[in-house]
Design a protein around this nucleic acid. Structure first.
Lengths: 223, 223
DNA sequence: GCGAGATGGTACTTTGTGGTACCATGTAAG
DNA sequence: CTTACATGGTACCACAAAGTACCATCTCGC
């Protein structure tokens, strides 16, 4: 390995032009590179299962950068968790201002949710949250409340509006909302988390969403 | 600790009756004790997160027993996985011979499934399967196919019978079965896996099952 | 009783990994 | 050009935990 590094040194010496692989990163670059490497490796091996050495090797830079940027492995995990949470959270909540008809709203919500959950970063987030139960229960719980919990609540409110207008007939709107979300997740989500299949294509998502909304709305229609 | 053990020795000496804490285990006892300790600690700290020392300490016996019984930590994990799988599998499949009406069948299936999934060992199994993706994907995939996969298939067959009899109206019975299972899992399962709540009581399960089956069957009823 | 095999307890070795210190080198300021 | 600082690379340390060896002790068969 030493020899390999030595050979590279010829590159860095006097190359004045655009270096294909900048030898020096600024803070922002290092930050991003480390998070990206941590995320990629977490997808492959499990959340933060890879060693810091592996992360460094992929991200470039030195071990020290992890400590200067994140304060250690825990800090890196937290940062990764926060980053992905921020990406995924919007998809888990219903846009309350959307005033279209109920079916369209449900479809939009379902489409957004299942697409995000089954995407690559949605899967990683799931893993982080799931495993986070053991190393940072607070954060996991917090995410659950901010994300899926809030999404279910907003959806329940929308259902209550629909019920008031006689569109649907249901006892517990929050329970119904949770069931709807459960249907949306269905088996797709589980299969994705277990890495038994690639992310679904648009058509597949669309078909899934159609079926879910059909059954759900039909199940709630006034008799 | 030595003194504590020494004090116990008086018990074992000539006590002909039931020894409260037998000093020597036979193979079966050791096997069971180790699996039990591993399971309990896995519930508390994550699958196989505890060290062998912790497991030994709880199970009694010596480190060597793990190697003689299971060949090492990996063997113990596999054995634990197999054991819990065997316990949970029956609940994930529909009893095909049950010839009652559709609603009763669905309720029975849903009740069994959600009760098992949200129970303590169901939660551990989930963790084992989830994390198993990374250390033994084959076993995880196999379980999924044998359990939930087969359960969904059997349920789909039952739905097809119902469809043939005009009880329900649905395009894709397998998709519907998966949605049903998704509804049954709902949020209860997720909250349990994330240890955000204790196992639901019977009334709670019953209410959940009622709502699920109501919406589902209503959603599929012929128009 | 007594000895051989089995078992429990413990200490040791090895390995992997998080964290830290140090050196060399590249970059930027004067 | 020179100097000072920041950064990359590497070696080192500390610690935890898996795996192993050994000894004492218990059980069982003679």
């Amino acid at each position: 390995m030493h020899q390999g590094k030595g050979a590279d040194e010829t590159v860095k010496r006097q190359t004045s032009g655009a270096a294909p692989k900048p030898r020096r990163m600024n803070a922002a670059e290092r930050h991003a590179a480390l998070l990206r490497a941590a995320r990629e490796l977490s997808i492959e091996q499990g959340v933060m299962a890879p060693s810091l050495d592996a992360i460094i090797q992929r991200a470039g830079g030195s071990r020290r950068s992890i400590y200067t940027e994140f304060g250690g492995k825990d800090g890196l995990r937290d940062a990764l968790m926060a980053e992905i949470s921020a990406e995924v959270l919007p998809a888990t909540t219903l846009d309350a201002r959307q005033e279209g008809d109920l079916r369209a709203t449900l479809k939009q919500f379902a489409r957004n949710l299942i697409a995000t959950l089954t995407s690559a970063h949605g899967t990683v987030l799931s893993w982080i949250i799931l495993q986070g139960v053991f190393f940072s229960p607070e954060r996991a719980r917090n995410f659950l409340e901010q994300g899926p919990g809030r999404g279910a609540k907003l959806l329940a409110e929308r259902l209550e509006v629909a019920r008031a207008q006689g569109e649907i007939e249901v006892r517990d709107c929050l329970a119904a909302a949770n069931l709807f979300i459960g249907m949306v997740r269905g088996n797709l989500y589980l299969e994705r988390v277990l890495q038994l299949r690639p992310p679904p294509g648009e058509e597949e998502i669309e078909a899934h969403v159609d079926t879910v909304v059909d059954i759900f709305l039909n199940g709630l229609r006034p008799r």
